[in-house]
Every structure is written in structure tokens, then in C-alpha cells.
């Protein structure tokens, strides 16, 4: 039986009168890439923000790596956060720091007794693996959108997380860069042995990176399975229109 690293049961979250997540149930298994697909504003990002304690659920259970998120104290939550990597939609690189300082930031604060040489080796190794070794001394403002995303992923990987959460990794990028990002997501899974949740509304990204796909519509998961099981012969008109828009209209 496959090991579950994330288990969500009956999760609910609303903002004022707006019910964003209604009775959400989902599992992430060790070593898999799970793509969460949904329209903008469907609550996909809210889901992973609850997973790292940036938001709190109203009810239900969110169990990550054997810990119930809502019951954790700050110190315990921070310990768990070290095992989860979060790649933000807009990369969220610290714009007053160079790429090197961006990558050092989480490392020097969470891993003690590392020499300067070890830190540099680690940073250079990760920049190599995301294909941007030359960017080490650049400022984020000097990088393109795709480069920022890659550096964002590299910064996240520096703490060697067991779970990777990607928030809209291909949003706002050209198709070629999207393809490179999708390849990077698969590379991260293989090289670093991570389990990942990829939040996207891009079906190409879902097809290329997802071992399983979960479709979030109206605050609930309407379909969970492999890409081929869900698309292209979906019966639910909402899922079908999603597929048609991505693969026919565009």
C-alpha cells in the first residue's frame, strides 16, 4: 500500500459569505506529482496555503507528513515547514537581495554549522540543476519571469523538502518556458525524490507533470485520476469545457 504524505478530509474554508472550499477530500502519495486543476478563484492556492499554515481552515482535517496542521504550535509548524517547499506564483524572490543571498536566506537561518564553502557549494549545485549557474550574483530585477521561477524553485529546494508545492508554475510564461518549467518539475521529483502538488489551470502542465490530476470546481474535487481517465472524454460539461478551451480553442 502506498504511503500517504498528505491527507485532507472534509476541509472547508470561506472568506466572508464566499465558500471557497467545501468538503474537500484528497490524498497525496509519496513520490507522486498530483496536479490540482481549477479555474481562477476556485480555491486551489487557498488549499496549499492551508497546507503550510499561511491560512487556517474553518473545519476539517489537513494531515501533512503525519501532523495535523491546525493543532500545531508555531515551533512545530516551523519544523514541518522545513519539510515542505513552496514555490510561489510570482516567485516571491526577495528583491533587495541577490540570487545568492536569496538562496542563503533560508539556509543560514535553519541549518546550523555550515561553512561558507559548504553554503556556496550547495547554492552552486542547485543553480546548476535549474540551469542558471551564471545568475548567482544577479538581482531578481535582472531576471526574466521564467528565470525567477527557476530560482524560486532552487531556493525552495535548498532545504531539501520532502513535499513540493507549486503555485501556478507556468502562469504568465511563454509556451517554451512553460515546457522547460514542466520538465524542471519532473526533474525535481526524480532527482530530489519529492512528492508534489502542482496548482495550475494549464492543462499542458497537468498532462506533462501530473501522475494524477484532481479537478477543483465550485469548492469540491469533481474528478480525481490520471489525465487520461479524466480527459478528453469527460462527461461533466465544466470539465469538458476546460479541456476544450485548453486543447481546441487555443
Amino acid at each position: 500500500m502506498r504511503e500517504k504524505v498528505v491527507e485532507i478530509r472534509g476541509l472547508e474554508k470561506s472568506f466572508g459569505d464566499l465558500d471557497v472550499l467545501k468538503d474537500v477530500n484528497l490524498e497525496l502519495y509519496k513520490g507522486e506529482n498530483l496536479v490540482v486543476l481549477g479555474k481562477s478563484g476556485s480555491g486551489k492556492s487557498v488549499l496549499i496555503k492551508i497546507m503550510v499554515g499561511l491560512l487556517k481552515q474553518d473545519s476539517g482535517s489537513m494531515n501533512v507528513l503525519g501532523r495535523e496542521i491546525s493543532t500545531l504550535k508555531t515551533k512545530e509548524l516551523n519544523e514541518l515547514r522545513l519539510r515542505i517547499g513552496f514555490s510561489f506564483q510570482n516567485s516571491a524572490l526577495y528583491d533587495s537581495m541577490t540570487v545568492r543571498e536569496n538562496m542563503e536566506f533560508p539556509l543560514v537561518r535553519n541549518v546550523k554549522n555550515l561553512s561558507k564553502k559548504e553554503i556556496t557549494m550547495k547554492i552552486e549545485g542547485l543553480l546548476d540543476s535549474v540551469g542558471l549557474p551564471q545568475s548567482i550574483n544577479q538581482m531578481p530585477s535582472e531576471l526574466s519571469g521564467g528565470q525567477k521561477k527557476r530560482i524560486g524553485v532552487a531556493r525552495t529546494l535548498i532545504l531539501e523538502p520532502e513535499i513540493m508545492l507549486y503555485d501556478e508554475p507556468t502562469a504568465g510564461l511563454d509556451p517554451i518556458t512553460c515546457g522547460e518549467l514542466n520538465a524542471l518539475i519532473n526533474q525535481v521529483k526524480d532527482e530530489y525524490n519529492t512528492s508534489s502538488i502542482v496548482i495550475t489551470h494549464d492543462l499542458t502542465c497537468a498532462k506533462d507533470t501530473g501522475d494524477r490530476v484532481a479537478v477543483l470546481l465550485d469548492g469540491e474535487f469533481n474528478a480525481v485520476g490520471t489525465f487520461e481517465e479524466i480527459f478528453p472524454n469527460a462527461e461533466d460539461p465544466r470539465i469538458k469545457s476546460f479541456y476544450d478551451y485548453n486543447f481546441i480553442n487555443s
Binding site: L54, R81, F86, F88, A92, L93, R109, T156, L159
Partner: peptide, 13 residues
């Protein structure tokens, strides 16, 4: 606004 504060928080800082 650009989620840099959230990024610090999720990296346990």
C-alpha cells in the same frame, strides 16, 4: 503584496 513575507514564513523564518 508580492508574497515575499509569506515566502519567509514558509521557509520557517
Amino acid at each position: 503584496v508580492t508574497e515575499q513575507i509569506d515566502a519567509m514564513e514558509v521557509s520557517a523564518t
